[in-house]
């Protein structure tokens, strides 16, 4: 079990459980295998395209067409108005729910990134029970995919007004709810989201931390660097793209989440997805259906922006991991 082997294992685990594939580049550029013959007959030849047509048709029908429809409806005006719903979606009350959603995603991403990074670093440095690391990665794989209704329930049972942990704190003189904490408010949701954000960050960061070669550290120590200096000048700069990329991934993750917040607040949250539901269910009465489309369209735009940044940063992070 050399370190590379282990790294590969974790990378593949990550690959399977999440969306991160470090080997993407080599796949994307297209290997040499199979490019003979077919390459010359042209990329549009029917015999070449026919077998992959169902896939593209399926994605076209159920992902691309709906997205296009979403945007065309979003740019139409709301009944009784002349401005596009896209513009109206950024008016006062809706803007405040965007601010709420963005802020929530940002805080949970930054906190999740910091704690997740420390967690990953700690897990990678502890060697004594060898199984700890496997335990941590295995568990993270499960927890990062949790979320949804069960997670909300688990936190209602522990940090709700009558929750176990709330009670324990209360008996020790800390009155959470007296201090204004509510599980369905801003900070409550942030804490709940950390449950899947921290493990996700761990899964992103472990391969990157394993990619720090011992020789770099030894070289730094040999020329007289302290461990602190090593981290300041070598370790952290190399990890920075991974850290930033991971943070963006966490942000996108939180931003598109819906079920957990919905169940925590019994449907009354100010989050953008919950607002979308509100507009669409009332659309026949209020005539504001297009507003729902516009909010969803804004979500797509924001996610497009964030995920592009993530992919760029990941490409940069891989610079050190090749060879």
């Amino acid at each position: 079990m050399g370190p590379t082997r282990r790294r590969q294992k974790i990378v593949s685990e990550l690959d399977f459980l999440l969306m991160v594939s470090p080997s993407q580049e080599e796949n994307v550029t297209g290997g040499p295998a199979g490019s003979r013959a077919s390459a010359t007959s042209g990329r549009w030849s029917p015999s070449l395209i026919l077998p992959i047509l169902p896939y593209f048709t399926f994605v076209g029908l159920f992902l691309l067409v709906p997205t296009v429809v979403l945007f065309t409806k979003a740019f139409r005006p709301v009944t009784g108005s002349t401005t596009s719903a896209m513009v109206e979606a950024m008016n006062a009350s809706n803007r405040s729910s965007f601010v709420f959603s963005l802020k929530l995603s940002l805080y949970s991403a930054i906190l999740g990134a910091i704690i997740g990074f420390l967690f990953a670093l700690a897990a990678s440095r502890i060697e004594r029970p060898r199984r700890l690391r496997n335990l941590v990665t295995g568990f993270s794989g499960v927890a990062a995919n949790l979320g949804g209704i069960p997670l909300a329930f688990a936190f209602i049972a522990s940090l709700g007004a009558q929750g176990l942990f709330t009670r324990i704190l209360y008996h020790n003189g800390i009155d959470l709810y007296g201090a204004g904490f509510k599980i369905y408010d801003f900070w409550g949701i942030v804490v709940v989201y950390l449950y899947f954000q921290i493990p996700l960050m761990l899964l992103v960061m472990l391969p990157a931390i394993d990619g720090l070669r011992p020789t770099w550290r030894e070289a730094a120590i040999n020329i007289g660097a302290s461990p602190f200096q090593y981290w300041r000048r070598v370790g952290l700069p190399i990890l920075t793209p991974s850290l930033l990329g991971g943070t963006l991934l966490l942000f996108a993750n939180a931003f598109s989440a819906y079920a957990t917040a919905y169940a925590l607040s019994s449907g009354g949250s100010r989050l953008v997805p919950v607002q979308i539901r509100f507009y669409l269910q009332g659309n026949t009465i209020t005539g504001k259906g297009n507003l729902g489309y516009a909010l969803a369209a804004w979500m797509v735009l924001i996610l497009l922006f964030v995920m592009t940044g993530y992919l760029l940063l990941r490409r940069r992070a891989e610079r050190w991991r090749t060879t």
Partner: peptide, 28 residues
């Protein structure tokens, strides 16, 4: 055979990350 289409196929598969479930269901 269709190696030239791999990139397109992968990019298309990733689009689902940009369209969150709530937007997907609204669009559909």
């Amino acid at each position: 055979r269709a190696v030239q289409w791999k990139m397109a196929a992968e990019v298309v598969s990733l689009l689902a990350y940009v369209v969150p479930p709530i937007a997907l269901v609204v669009g559909v």
